[in-house]
C-alpha cells in the first residue's frame, strides 16, 4: 500500500470515527436518556400540596368555625360576601340548594361541588386571590369549616375540622356527577349523513337576534350593560 493511500485511509478513519465524539442519542434499555436529577424530599414536600377526595395529601392540623369566620371576614368576604353570597361577579360560595334544575342555577360548595377535599386544596393553593399560599394549614381547616357552616352542612358553631374527621364530611351533590356520555346523544350516536337539500319546510324564520340584547363590547353606551352566561 502506497504512503498516499495509507494516509487517506487514516484520515477518513479519523473523520468517520470516534474522534468527533458524536453518536445518535437514544434512550437506554429502560427508556432513559440520563437527563435531570433526583428531587430531594424537601423539594417534593414544598410543591406537593395537592389533596384528593380519599384524603391523600391532607396535612395534620385542625381549625374551627369561629376562627374560620374571623379569617374569612378578613381575607375572603371582600369578594365572596359576608355569607358566601358573592360580591358582583365574584364566585358565590354558599346557598343555591335545589337550584341545579332552575333556569339560573347557583353552583356553590353546598349545592354543586362533589368533594370537600376540593375546597381545602383550592383555598390552600390559590386563595386568598392575589396572596396565594399565605394561609397556614390550620387556617385552611378553619376556613373550610366555616364554609361548611355557611352551607348548613355543619350546624354547630363549635365544630372543629381536622385531618382526623375530614373524610366523615360528604357534600350533598356528590352522587349527581356522571361520566361523559356525549357519544350517546342522538346527533352523535346516529352517525348518519346529514340532510343536504330541502332540510326545512319553507323559508327559514329568524327566532332570535343578538342586537335585541346588544351586549357586544363597543356597541352600548352604558358600560354597566351585561349579558348572561360566563366563561368559568
Amino acid at each position: 500500500m502506497s504512503k498516499l493511500v495509507k494516509s487517506i485511509l487514516i484520515s477518513s478513519a479519523l473523520l468517520s470515527g470516534a474522534g468527533f465524539g458524536a453518536t445518535l442519542v437514544s434512550a437506554d434499555d429502560s427508556g432513559k436518556f440520563g437527563l435531570g436529577r433526583e428531587a430531594t424530599p424537601a423539594e417534593v414536600a414544598a410543591w406537593d400540596i395537592d389533596i384528593r377526595p380519599d384524603g391523600q395529601g391532607l396535612p395534620v392540623g385542625s381549625g374551627n368555625v369561629l376562627d374560620g369566620e374571623e379569617l374569612y371576614t378578613n381575607a375572603c368576604a371582600v369578594c365572596h360576601g359576608d355569607f358566601g353570597e358573592g360580591v358582583g361577579r365574584w364566585p358565590v360560595l354558599a346557598g343555591g340548594h335545589d337550584t341545579l334544575t332552575h333556569e339560573r342555577p347557583e353552583k356553590t360548595i353546598g349545592s354543586y361541588w362533589p368533594y370537600l377535599s376540593t375546597v381545602y386544596d383550592y383555598v390552600r393553593r390559590a386563595m386568598p386571590y392575589g396572596d396565594a399560599r399565605s394561609l397556614s394549614d390550620d387556617d385552611v381547616y378553619a376556613i373550610t369549616a366555616y364554609l361548611l357552616y355557611l352551607n348548613d352542612i355543619v350546624l354547630d358553631e363549635d365544630f372543629v375540622l381536622s385531618n382526623e374527621n375530614f373524610l366523615e364530611i360528604r357534600l350533598p351533590n356528590e352522587r349527581n356527577f356522571t361520566p361523559d356520555d356525549r357519544d350517546q346523544e342522538p346527533f352523535y350516536a346516529a352517525k348518519t349523513e346529514p340532510c343536504m337539500t330541502d332540510c326545512k319546510d319553507g323559508p327559514v324564520q329568524i327566532t332570535m337576534r343578538a342586537r335585541i340584547l346588544d351586549v357586544t363590547p363597543g356597541t352600548v353606551d352604558d358600560d354597566a350593560a351585561a349579558g348572561v352566561g360566563g366563561v368559568d
Binding site: 332570535m208 337576534r209 343578538a210 342586537r211 351586549v215 357586544t216 356597541t219 352566561g229
Partner: peptide, 13 residues
C-alpha cells in the same frame, strides 16, 4: 367555554 355565552341564545355580535 368557547361559545358559552351563546347557550341561551344569540348574544354577541
Amino acid at each position: 367555554a368557547n361559545s358559552g355565552m351563546e347557550w341561551r341564545g344569540a348574544q354577541l355580535n
